[in-house]
Nucleic acid binder design. Structure first.
Lengths: 347, 347
DNA sequence: CTGAAAGCGCTTACAG
DNA sequence: CTGAAAGCGCTTACAG
């Protein structure tokens, strides 16, 4: 019955277009576009500007990003590509990114399968979105090469990123070195290392830096006491259980883990098998996840400032998008050793 | 000097369009579109189909999703709107969703500020992307009303979603009831509850269900022993520390927590203040995060099957997108009590 | 300051 | 089976 437009209710049924706003305000769509995008200064008369704003309000108009993206050749999307967002690390990083991006860009996350870079198909689909920029966590060389088109991109936590790819990294070298120095200072002479099976550059550097620092500090690392597991507590626990006897025989008194998650698994397995931490074995993690204060014993770890990484990466990306050349294409944020009970430090 | 096209190298410089493919294959863009979208069956000759495929391969063409979305009025994006993706829960849920969506839709996450639903502006921007469907975690009524346009949407973990919004939920009532029953069976007569300050429906139901079950089972819940904190370990620990003396005086022997994270904070604070868990106080969580096997003591909790929720939600969403009416608009997945040491159950 | 018009890349009736 | 053409909603030279 009542099919007539009711003047007061914006009808949500039909999409409101710039043309409708233009008609309503008695101007052209060009003018609507200018006003809606805040580009009206000095190009639209006060009177028309006011009319358009009014019409936008009344009709509930908003710029359609699809149409806009097509016309401009690029969207206002910033896509964060990350493998394992369940890491609390990412929540902080994202908060940092969002703060910098503000209303200007829209942040969306693309989650890849566990520990993997996106497939070629996924990359195409991402590029099909015409993002204004990409933030990529620990990209593989393959990923970077398949990207081909040169859009603004910042790599995160990617110490191996090629020279021409700007990246924001943690100083894991320092962190790994600090762990080794701490263990040496506690009097350990033979130590083990529990690595992650996923071979990202960060994790490789953590191991290499630890092993070389250990050697420099005069600590032995028996080959049998270097092992690895996936970044899952259960898997790390099983690995510990399977290897503890031979590790013990090898004479190690401390075990450095590639991540806190690994260390949690070790603590758990140690507790069920009656291995005393830190008396029988000192244990350290890396990442300083929130749980590390609650584990038993609390876990010595290396703290990384995820929020700062997010902020710095987003700032750099914005510069790239704006066409400003970056002063430094490689940023490095310091890491900090947090000593807790698991390494026989303070409680 | 060399500005001529080299025939073998696809030039990444210029975007490959359907028109270029059409020219290359000697057909119209309509034909290219048909082939590229797999809609060629019975509409394109074998010969042309082959030519187009060849051209697509040679030029490295892929359908531009912006152009396609504009023409079709909808994109192939499925957007998952979630507040706190650092919950390990989400990684599993996402894996479930991705499996069901496959190559047909592109999953992207939109992260809102901690514990908040997206703002009206953010919702507009989301809708501006013309998503094929939305998956929304614990949407507020406000969010749902601001959405206005009726696009395919499934609410997750939203027991309070209105009748007309399909949702996939956990049976938190059962879970909360099981916790209460377990504590009653252990002989507890006076118990406390540590709630979350964020007032999502799930959390409200957890509390209400627990309190009512406790009452039914003849357990007292002193008013002084019902408190709340944010979903952060540190905050929960501080809350415990601040209240423990009066809780003790109130005579409670068990504390049910709204989430595992709360419980971790309690365990931590208890350990530093010398409160024995479970001897002095039995503690339970909710969510069964991975760390709950590694905490000290290990944490009794309620396991929720995040992967299944992802699968079911994605399946329901696909039905909605396809226009198939849902058989049941409310799905509920069972939850399961996992008894561990913190409640004096098994080790 | 303003609007008509071209164009972004695609899809889809439509006519043949 | 095929292609010319309209149209999706917007932006941006361009001419006035």
């Amino acid at each position: 019955m009542n099919n007539a437009d009711s003047p007061n209710e914006p009808r949500p049924t039909r999409k409101v277009t710039a043309a409708m706003v233009a008609a309503h305000a008695g101007v052209s769509t060009a003018t609507v576009s200018l006003v809606a995008n805040g580009k009206s200064a000095g190009r639209v008369s006060k009177r028309n500007e006011e009319r358009v704003r009014e019409a936008i309000r009344e009709l509930g108009y908003y710029v359609d990003s699809i149409g806009s993206s097509l016309a401009r050749g690029v969207s206002s999307l910033v896509i964060l590509v990350a493998p394992d967002i369940s890491n609390p690390f990412f929540a902080k990083l994202i908060a940092g990114v969002r703060g910098v991006l503000g209303e200007d860009y829209q942040l969306l996350l693309s989650v890849t399968d566990a520990g993997l870079s996106p497939s070629a198909t996924e990359i195409r689909r991402l590029l099909g979105l015409r993002p204004a920029g990409l933030l990529v966590h620990a990209p593989t060389p393959l990923f970077l090469s398949e990207l081909s088109s040169p859009l603004p991109l910042i790599a995160l936590d990617a110490p191996d990123a090629p020279e021409n790819i700007p990246s924001v990294n943690f100083d894991v070298l320092q962190g790994a070195h600090d762990v080794a120095a701490h263990l040496a200072a506690q009097g350990h002479r033979r130590v083990g290392y529990l690595d992650a099976t996923t071979g990202t550059a960060t994790l490789r550097m953590r191991r290499e830096a630890f092993l070389s620092a250990a050697a420099q500090l005069g600590m032995q690392v028996p080959a049998v006491a270097v092992s690895s597991s996936t970044i899952e507590m259960g898997d790390a626990a099983a690995t510990f259980a399977a290897h503890w006897e031979e590790w013990k025989e090898s004479g190690i008194t401390a075990l450095a883990c590639a991540t806190d998650t690994h260390a949690y698994g070790v603590l758990q397995a140690a507790s069920t098998t009656g291995v005393q931490i830190p008396q029988d074995l000192a244990v350290t993690g890396f990442d300083d996840l929130p749980f590390s204060t609650a584990s038993h014993p609390s876990l010595t770890s290396v703290r990384l400032d995820a929020h700062s990484v997010g902020v710095q990466a987003a700032q750099a990306l914005r510069q790239l998008i704006d066409g400003t050349p970056l002063k430094e294409s490689k940023l490095q944020l310091s890491s900090q050793l947090i000593v807790r009970a698991s390494s026989g430090g303070t409680q």
